Amino acid sequence: MWHSPPVRQAADQPSRRAFFGATAAVAAAGLTAGCGPEIAPTTIAPVPPTGRFQAGIVAPQEAQTNVLVVVADLEDGVAIGSLLAELGKAVQALTAGTDARLLGFPSGDLTVTIGIGPRLVRMVDPALPGAVDLPEFAHEQIPPQARGGDLLMQICANDVMIPPIAAAALLDHTSNRLRERWRQSGHRGSTIPVDQGRTAPRNLFGFTDGIVGPHTTAQQQQNLWLPGPSPVADGTIAVIRRMNLDLPRFAALPIPVQEEIFGRRRETGEPLSGGTIATDPNLNAKTPDGRYRIPADAHIRRAHPTTAGVNLMLRRSYSVNDPAPGLLFISFQNDIQTFTKTLTHMTNGDALLSFTTTTATAPFLILPGFDDTRPLGSTLFHT
């Protein structure tokens, strides 16, 4: 849900109020959020926050159940390099469970992924990947406050309590240097096994999301991670989009019509061209009477990389219920045109888009990985 920027007040009281207000809201939510499965803290493996790549993209392999994205702007005069380095240290403390602002909760498999928006990238070099804003597309109703932003914090965990607590801690840590634009929480629904220990979640339409993508190391090297130039090498480009879904109108359709819109079987996730859920769709397959088994306007045809003429993107989809039933879509790719060309191709004939309205969007350069000797953001900014 997007929010207007908070009104700043004197001294350092706002950050404390924001922090304790947020954590109080989390505690209240915990009294009513007992619908999800409980996972014992001892069963959750921690995810190292440092390394060649940032955590929260391909590590862990199976995306956590809960996500919170926070998009913010930098206040004027903020030293970007120092802020990012401090955020990196805060992420290390939070994921290690040593930050008192976790309020006694175990950090579990918490990951925090940090990205910077095009304005900040252009301050370094307008020719760098990540310097380009997204164009406007059809099926959008986006207020100015929910378009773009300077900084992304993607916070993931299997424990539903952890992302908002971690977000409050990070925003408190950046006291008066960041101004929040919008935030959105999301949850992965029930999943379907795909292959090699990989699963994919169902969306609110009842269909499976995120099946096609760069899932092997070789595919990720080719399609996901930036090869250079050196300041951005081992980063990636993220696109965040929140969409409202017209559930009543879609649910009123017969199941075969729903399946033709997606191009997959609703129950199994297998493409209409046959095979299993892991089978690449055969876009040339036809029925005996000459019709395409996957219709010309089916989502998996219009979004498929071969028909859009692009590389693979790694997609993470989460269901949202506030402010309306919908989808939080996050894609990672090493070329922004992988996303823009795909969406343009979808806009020109994807039957699914008539059931969606995008209400927030932003692109970000996900920074390269960091460690104790290489602070977060140090390849781009001086501390």
Rank of each mutant, 00 (worst) to 15 (best):
E260Q: 13
G130T: 01
I237T: 03
T50G: 12
M346K: 11
P214M: 06
S175N: 14
P375K: 04
V239L: 06
A63W: 01
F355Y: 15
A29R: 09
L134Y: 00
G21E: 01
K341W: 12
R147M: 10
R179E: 12
Q219L: 14
V47N: 04
V7T: 10
W2A: 15
V124E: 07
A351L: 03
Q337K: 05
P143K: 03
P295Q: 13
G235Y: 12
V70D: 03
T208S: 11
V232T: 07
L314Y: 00
N284P: 05
V160G: 10
F364W: 02
I294C: 11
F19L: 14
V67M: 02
A285D: 08
Q222S: 07
T113P: 05
Y292E: 10
R374H: 14
Y292A: 09
P14C: 07
R266L: 09
V69W: 04
P295C: 08
P60E: 05
P229G: 10
Q92E: 14
V67A: 02
Q258F: 01
A29V: 10
M243D: 08
D372W: 08
A127K: 09
N223S: 10
R249E: 09
Q221F: 02
T217D: 13
D73I: 13
V7C: 13
I57K: 00
C35G: 12
A100H: 07
S331W: 00
D350L: 07
V78P: 13
T356E: 09
H299C: 03
D76V: 01
T42C: 06
T23N: 12
A278G: 04
T279L: 11
R188K: 11
P126Q: 06
